[in-house]
Design a protein around this nucleic acid. Structure first.
Lengths: 147, 147
DNA sequence: CTATATGCAAATAGTTTGCCTGTTA
DNA sequence: TAACAGGCAAACTATTTGCATATAG
C-alpha cells in the first residue's frame, strides 16, 4: 500500500505535476485550490461551479481533465461513495470516509496504523489500495432524529 | 450494523419478497437464480444476458427493477467497486471485496468478527453499514506479472 | 516552436422513468 | 379484479471524446 502522505501546497503543485509529466496550468491550480479551500468532498460539478467563480471560462470537460491529472499525480483522491457522481478529496493521508445518510455529508475519519491488520489476506493476493466507507448518521442528523 | 445473515434459497425467496411487500414474479426469481448460479459479481447487463437465456423476453428495465426489489428485500447487495457499472452479489454475510486490477475480477473475503473494532468511531456518529473494498492483484494475475 | 491542455459540443455508458399491457394475490 | 410488475422507448445523469484553438516549457 503505497501513497504519498504529504499534502501539496499550491506552490509545490507545479513541481508535483511536472514530476508526473503534466504541465502546470491555471485551471489545474484552480481546481486544486477549490478542493483545498473547502474540504467537503465535492463532486466534479460542484468543483466546476466553484472554480467558475474565479475563472468564468473554465469548462466542465476541463474540470474532469484536471481532476484526472491531479488524481494521477497523486495529490487528490477520487472517492466513490454513493451511486451518483464521484467525489474528490485532497486528503492523501490514510483515512476512511463516513457518509451521512441524513444530510449526505462525507466526513474524513483517521485510520489507525494497524487497521489493515484486521483484514487478513488469503495467500497470493496483493493489496495495492484500500477503500473503506461507512454509512450512517452524523452527530447532527442523529440527534435531530431522536426527537 | 444490522444485516440478515441468512442467504435465501429459491423456495424461500417468495416469502422474503412478500415480507417486504413485494410480489413474487418469474423475473425476480430468475434474476435471483442468475446471481446464485455464478457468484462472480455480475453487472446489471451481465445479469440481463444470463437471464435472457432461459427467459428471452425479459427486458433490461425489468432486470434493474428486479435487482432493486431484491436489494430492498435484503437478499442481494449492490456493490460499487469501479467507476463503471454497479455489481450485484447474493452473499449477505459480512464480507469485503477484493477487486483485481489485472483481470477485473471481484473476490469475496471473509470479514473477521472483530474487524470493525479496528475503526474507532468519533462520538455521535452511528454506523448503519460498512463497506470495504481493496484493489490489487489476485494470485493468478500476480504470478503472471512476475515473469 | 511544438507538445500538451483547453473549450465546445456531440457521443457514450449506465440507469431511470412514463405509459400502456400483462400478471399476481 | 385491483394493485402491482413487465416491456418498450425515451429521458436523464455522469463522464468521455474529437477537434480546432490557445498556452506552457
Amino acid at each position: 500500500m503505497k501513497r504519498n502522505p504529504s499534502t501539496a501546497t499550491p506552490n509545490q503543485l507545479s513541481e508535483q505535476l511536472a514530476a508526473t509529466g503534466f504541465r502546470s496550468t491555471q485551471q489545474r491550480q484552480r481546481v486544486y485550490d477549490v478542493l483545498m479551500e473547502k474540504r467537503d468532498h465535492p463532486t466534479a460539478e460542484e468543483v466546476f461551479l466553484r472554480a467558475k467563480q474565479a475563472m468564468p471560462d473554465i469548462s466542465m470537460a476541463t474540470v474532469y481533465n484536471c481532476l484526472d491529472a491531479l488524481v494521477k499525480t497523486g495529490v487528490v483522491r477520487q472517492v466513490k461513495i454513493e451511486r451518483g457522481a464521484a467525489r474528490f478529496c485532497p486528503n492523501m493521508h490514510e483515512h476512511w470516509h463516513f457518509h451521512c445518510t441524513g444530510c449526505g455529508g462525507v466526513f474524513d475519519m483517521d485510520q489507525p496504523d494497524n487497521a489493515c491488520d484486521a483484514f487478513p489476506l488469503p495467500k497470493g493476493f496483493k493489496i495495492d489500495q484500500f477503500e473503506i466507507a461507512a454509512h450512517g448518521l452524523c452527530p447532527a442528523c442523529s440527534s435531530a432524529r431522536n426527537k
